[in-house]
């Protein structure tokens, strides 16, 4: 299940310490639209193994600033509440599964 994070929801999920993959996006960003189906797919594929979610940088500017998101889409991976990796720009699904699989 794909989670659309608010700041509160995000912080709560982060404090759980699970493996997380979060796509920072916005509606005015073409490349983000391209990445969306990939993120949707991964959310389904990693159900129960990792938390897959999205942060709308327009609505949650504080989160975008906190993680220094300067280009979207940016996908950030977290584990134990800390950032472990990030991918900037549109990439094939494999680039994300590689990070997820090596941190399961």
């Amino acid at each position: 299940m794909l989670v659309h994070f608010s700041k509160e929801g995000f912080d709560k999920a982060l404090s759980d310490g699970k493996l997380m993959m979060v796509d920072f996006w916005a509606s005015w960003c073409g490349p983000c639209k391209m990445l969306a189906p990939v993120i949707d797919d991964l959310a389904e594929q990693y159900e129960g193994k990792a938390v897959v979610g999205k942060v709308n940088v327009d609505e949650e500017q504080e989160l975008a600033i906190r993680y220094g998101v300067m280009s979207i889409p940016t996908v950030i991976f977290f584990k134990d509440g800390k950032e472990i990796d990030r991918k900037v720009g549109v990439m094939p699904g494999g680039a994300f599964t590689q990070v997820l699989d090596s941190n399961l």
Binding site: G30, A64, V69, M70, S71, T74, V88, G89
Partner: peptide, 17 residues
């Protein structure tokens, strides 16, 4: 610095600046 300040797309990333 691509994605860490360097961008190729004003429409995509302008709002973040």
């Amino acid at each position: 610095y691509l994605g860490r300040g360097v961008s190729y797309c004003a429409t995509c990333d302008g709002m973040l600046y």
